[in-house]
Design a protein around this nucleic acid. Structure first.
Length: 279
DNA sequence: CTCAGTGTTCAGTG
DNA sequence: TCACTGAACACTGA
């Protein structure tokens, strides 16, 4: 379920349940895709008995800092969740099922029990999520390559312009989805930012005026900060946001202002936008 | 039954 | 190197 706000919500769950505790039991699914070819025994041996120091996030990646490496990195993919036993999931389906309360939840890939009795489960229905182990998560492979995190490391206006200047030919929508540019922006956030900034998603970076660049930067920060502030609860997003209407897909989709929403495909992803507002 | 979807990576082309 | 496409991964809900 991830984009940055959901990942930050998940970081909170990890911090609350795991930080300062010791892992007393581990259950690992035999899933070479999610665990990158690590077998369950290897994963269990890395985690059992470890004390969790802290939970970190950069972009859509999360990791637990342990008292001894390697440290586990989580990526939720499109359908991953982290649940704590007894808590409701962030996104309960419209009609709650008995399986929503089952433990461990369906599609659990990794379940941890802590010395204070807390329990966490990482689920991944579609297997697009990952559990990776790294000695220095920030400085190694996937995380080291990420661009700025808009929540914690929003660049200055000057720095932002410099970063854009390195990608003059990039198409705006594709640039926003590029995790080596802005880490944590996904499909709906990219569309929301461009909608609020009034920019056509097909524009090239080099065509932006100074004022448009400033608007783009401001909206990246605003959309993410707002979504994080309400803990990624979609029903708490401002009613004027495109988000609520983007999948009114069947033709007559309209924003809260009555503007017609159209759909394009850019970079292999569906883009919702409002031609009368985005230039 | 079919298809697209809050994502990433890699191979291949230009 | 950069920009872009398509494929692969696998399940759910419309």
């Amino acid at each position: 379920m991830p984009e940055l706000p959901e990942a930050e919500h998940t970081r909170g769950i990890l911090e609350r349940l795991a930080a300062g505790r010791r892992v007393v039991a581990v259950e690992v699914a035999d899933d070479p895709i999610v665990f990158e070819d690590r077998d369950p025994a290897w994963v269990t041996a890395r985690l059992a008995g470890r004390r969790v120091v802290a939970a970190h996030r950069r972009g859509k990646y999360l990791w637990l800092e342990l008292d001894e490496g390697p440290h586990p990195i989580l990526h939720l993919g499109m359908t991953g969740t982290v649940r704590s036993r007894g808590d409701e999931p962030l996104r309960l389906s419209s009609s709650p099922k008995a399986t929503d309360r089952a433990w461990p939840p369906r599609f659990t890939k990794l379940a941890l029990t802590f010395d204070d009795g807390g329990e966490l489960a990482f689920t991944n229905a579609r297997r697009l999520g990952r559990v990776l182990f790294r000695d220095a998560p920030r400085d190694e492979k996937p995380i080291a390559r990420l661009g700025f995190d808009p929540l914690t490391d929003m660049p200055s206006a000057r720095d932002f312009e410099a970063r854009l200047a390195r990608r003059p030919k990039a198409i705006l929508k594709a640039l926003l989805l590029d995790q080596t540019f802005a880490a944590g922006v996904g499909n709906w956030i990219a569309d929301e930012v461009l909608y609020q900034a009034g920019l056509d998603p097909r524009r090239r970076v080099a065509s932006l005026s100074a004022e448009e660049t400033a608007r783009l930067r401001a909206k990246i920060r605003h959309v993410i900060a707002t979504a994080v502030r309400v803990d990624a609860r979609k029903d708490a997003f401002p009613k004027t946001w495109l988000f609520h209407h983007r999948w009114g897909k069947d033709r007559d989709a309209k924003t809260s202002r009555g503007e017609v929403i159209e759909h394009l495909e850019i970079g292999g992803r569906t883009t919702a936008w409002v031609p009368t507002r985005q230039r």
